[in-house]
Nucleic acid binder design. Structure first.
Lengths: 226, 226
DNA sequence: GCCTTGTTTTTAGCCAATTTTAAGAATCAT
DNA sequence: ATGATTCTTAAAATTGGCTAAAAACAAGGC
């Protein structure tokens, strides 16, 4: 994942660049607005995300944002700013930014926001299928043979976990950790109950065998469709 | 974004120019009508918006507006005026102006109007629909089956967010971030209350199910119309 | 200033849906 | 057959959203 950072203060720029590179991103830095816009426009396809300082020598962040939005609606843009009025945040978002982080910010917070934007934009899988079953994370919908099926939060989360690991065993302990809480009482039988809910809601009444295979003593698995 | 300001009073002109430049616009000033029209016609393609004083030495604002509209229908034109009769406003709009601001005006207000006009210019989507519901960002109007519905600011913003994401889940946390403030107390019930306001204002009394689907524990969704 | 009006946010009770627990029945492996 | 594991069902506990009403806040008029 390639990120362009437009920020004139070298200390901040380095802090962010180093931190993000440690996390596995490729980061390019431009230290003024004009250069930044140039680089961005010349390599629009290259970058997956833009971090943009609000106050820049040369061109302001707002102007850069506008200029880029004319060319490209997709590129996620996050503003970094010392300004702290609500108006600025709203203004930034209206200009076409996707998010807005106030300095001083925690690195963790920034990382989280970057991840959110990259996930929703950069083609991460949001639709899962098994035979005539379809789960869509964007719309938060599940359909069976085209017919909508209403799932509760936990049912949805459990099915998502199973489908994400289609073909692989999902161990009970892992399920408890991922779908419920890391420190959830391991001696519970909730999983069984919820597997049962899913089977009831998603299986053709007369089915000989379940689409969720029980692996006794270990956990469950949804098979790869043949 | 380049703005041409035609205004003879130097103090007002400077106030506006400085303010807009701080906001990232490039502003040129002409201090009389003749010069202003000249500049405008010679550089029609250069400017994204025209701010035009009503009373000018040499040529009046109205005459300038007419002359420009002969050449160019697109350029957004905003009148600035001390006059305060409704007639003048109507007259200005008939002449081809897009908006009309009375002096004395707040800078914020002017900025807001400028942004609205630039938005529709930049090809961004400004009309959203769901069945017989229509929301127009340019005119800031919402109609239900052709009948105008009055929404407050927050109601409007919430509906806009939901419609922009028509078909997709809108998670509570995202709604709070986008419609309210980024760091708004997450444990509040304002969202519920405003969803309720929207439903009351926009739903046919005897409706069996809401046009805003509740997804318990997650958020809300306006469905794609079938 | 103070009052009025409209908007936004908080609060709290209610209710329904969801989640969890529990316990007996069924199934499996040896 | 036996013990362990999973399935099923019902009932209890909890959560989360809806609603109405009140409180807080903002803007405009007098």
């Amino acid at each position: 994942m390639r990120i362009l950072l437009i920020e004139d203060e070298a200390s901040i720029a380095n802090f962010i660049k180093d931190g993000l590179e440690e996390e596995g991103f490729a980061v390019d830095v431009a230290d003024n607005g004009k250069k930044g816009l140039q680089i961005a426009l010349d390599n629009l396809e290259e970058y997956d995300l833009l971090l943009l300082d609000w106050m820049l020598p040369g061109l302001s962040g707002i102007e850069i944002c506008r200029a880029i939005r004319k060319q490209n609606q997709q590129l996620p843009i996050i503003f970094l700013t010392a300004k702290d009025t609500v108006d600025d945040a709203v203004f930034a978002l209206e200009t076409g930014a996707n998010d807005f982080i106030r300095k001083p910010f925690s690195f963790e917070e920034m990382l989280a926001r970057i991840r959110v934007l990259l996930r929703s934009q950069s083609g991460e899988q949001t639709v899962f299928r098994y035979k005539d079953l379809e789960m869509n994370l964007d719309t938060h919908r599940v359909t069976k043979a085209g017919v909508a099926v209403e799932l509760t939060q936990k049912e949805f989360a459990l099915l998502e976990y199973l489908l994400r690991n289609k073909g692989k065993v999902c161990r009970r302990t892992r399920i408890i950790e991922k779908v419920w809480d890391i420190n959830f009482d391991h001696s519970t039988a909730v999983i069984d109950v919820y597997i049962n809910f899913l089977r009831k809601k998603l299986e053709n009444p007369g089915a000989e065998e379940s689409f969720i295979t029980t692996i006794r003593g270990i956990g469950y698995r949804i098979n790869d469709d043949a």
